[in-house]
């Protein structure tokens, strides 16, 4: 290549002495994502709400005045204390009131959102893992595997996912001895919601996989003779993951609502370990008898959580994938 003059093309982009790269933090703060975030007050608000609620859930044991799951800490005598009231009997202050068991509603919300978020995250992770695996297989291998997986997905989509979760929940419980129900409720819930929700991940991954598979960088890897598993895990998987993670953010809000719905219907978390949905179910009994706070505050908490997570997910999708808009 002696006669080949060095094109200034590369020199123009890559100066001979590379300019000092800005730090990762600087790069991040300068990115389009941060720029877009700063310009949308709704998104900022949603972020703040989400972070506050996450923090409240995470640090519940240190924030909450009592552990609502521990019957010994409940003062039955303080039952139905209205919000912002100090009990005349025990001297406890109830920020958001107390319920029929003397359970502090504020503490119950903190602990309840803990369970809601745990179930939500775990269910999304489960659905995401299952959906991604099946979607990759369907998209990459094609043929009868693809047909089988996608037909199952189609059939499942004809049922509302909450019905699906109810069904799965019932079936799993049917196999378990009655004594175990309360203990494993949370795991059963995660599996039920996850199983009812894998389809959208599988579809997204399958579509993206088929697109990536046809791209020339994958063909280049094939020409080299790389084995399928290497192509799949090194090339395709990382490239299809981004859209899936965005769906996952929106899916989190849906999973939280699904958990609340199941618990509200009485098939989710037991009243001894209340999630937000359980609290709402319990609370609705008192809606017309004057103790409105037992229903209202868990309801508002669920609404704020689901709404802000959903807003964040929508925003993330728009920022990361402008073509979807």
């Amino acid at each position: 290549m002696s006669q080949q003059p060095k094109p200034s093309e590369s020199a123009a982009v890559a100066a001979p002495i590379a300019p000092k790269r800005p730090s990762r933090l600087r790069t991040f703060l300068d990115s389009d994502i941060v720029y877009s975030w700063q310009r949308q007050p709704v998104v900022i608000l949603a972020t703040l709400v989400t972070l506050t609620m996450f923090a409240g859930a995470l640090f519940a044991p240190w924030i909450a005045p009592q552990n609502p799951f521990d019957p010994r800490q409940l003062e039955l005598i303080d039952a139905f204390t209205p919000p912002l009231t100090t009990s005349d009997f025990t001297g406890n202050f109830y920020l958001l009131g107390s319920d029929s068991q003397g359970r502090d509603v504020f503490s119950a919300i903190l602990y309840g959102s803990r369970i809601s978020l745990l179930v939500g995250f775990a269910a999304v992770l489960f659905a995401l893992a299952l959906g991604t695996a099946l979607g990759l297989m369907a998209g990459f291998r094609g043929g009868w595997r693809d047909a089988l997986i996608m037909r199952i997905a189609d059939v499942q989509l004809t049922f509302p996912s909450i019905l699906m979760a109810l069904l799965i929940f019932g079936v799993i419980r049917g196999f378990l001895p009655r004594s175990m129900h309360a203990e494993v409720a949370i795991i059963v819930l995660i599996i039920a919601i996850g199983l009812s929700d894998w389809v959208q991940y599988a579809r997204a991954v399958r579509g993206a996989t088929m697109v990536e598979k046809g791209k020339e960088y994958v063909q280049a890897a094939r020409v080299i003779g790389l084995p399928d598993h290497r192509i799949l895990f090194q090339h395709i998987l990382p490239n299809v993951l981004r859209p899936v993670l965005v769906i996952g953010t929106i899916g989190l809000a849906l999973a939280i609502i699904a958990e609340a719905t199941l618990s509200f219907l009485g098939v989710g978390m037991p009243a001894t370990q209340p999630s937000l949905g359980t609290l709402i179910r319990v609370g609705q009994d008192y809606m017309f008898s004057g103790e409105w706070w037992i229903l209202l505050f868990p309801g508002v908490a669920l609404l704020l959580l689901a709404l802000s997570v959903n807003l964040l997910g929508d925003w993330l999708r728009d920022v990361l994938n402008p073509k979807l808009r």
Partner: peptide, 19 residues
């Protein structure tokens, strides 16, 4: 045998793994 030949593709935007 494969290491003795190679291929160059048309679309320079799709032929390199973006990540």
């Amino acid at each position: 045998i494969r290491q003795r030949f190679q291929m160059i593709f048309q679309d320079p935007y799709a032929s390199l793994n973006p990540l």
